[in-house]
Amino acid sequence: MSDTVFEPKILGFLCNWCSYRAADLAGIARIKYPANIRIIRVMCSGRVDPTFVLSAFAQGADGVMVAGCHPGECHYVDQNYKAMRRYAMLKQMLAQMGLEDNRLRLVWASAAEGQQLAEAIEKLVADVRELGPLNWPKSWEENGHRLEAIQNIAREHAEAMEVPQ
């Protein structure tokens, strides 16, 4: 690793049945991708507790990938849809915390899609490299998202309070 280029640390939560095997396949096929990602195996993308993602960011991850089977192909019928819902929630939370939500990515990769997974990893690493290191206090100060996000909360609350006609 050179000193000048920022090398982000990315954590990947990959489901046992599709994405972890896609990563295995990428290896078997000797497809190259940056060494920045460190992969953690879970049985299903539905196992990924939002706390895991936040905890990873809190402990110094610059980006997080959650990967599962394609919608409709989940080994556990439809649990990847639950991952999808949590992902939407997490994205919003990150923005509200003043973090770039682009640091978190949900990827679908079937066991045959080693190439696609490698490309997704490469893209995430490149995007996070561009964003720079995750710097909580600095992000809070500088990131324009923060104000916008707080205003969004107020707006959403107001909308939720409205009684539908």
């Binding site: 990563a23 295995d24 290896g27 000797r30 190259k32 060494a35 920045n36 460190r38 490698a118």
Partner: peptide
């Protein structure tokens, strides 16, 4: 832990791969 499929086979930089 998967050093072969997830690390050595997909990496090009020996230092980075060792750190990973």
């Amino acid at each position: 832990t998967n050093l072969r499929e997830h690390c050595s086979w997909v990496s090009t930089d020996r230092l980075a791969a060792t750190a990973k």
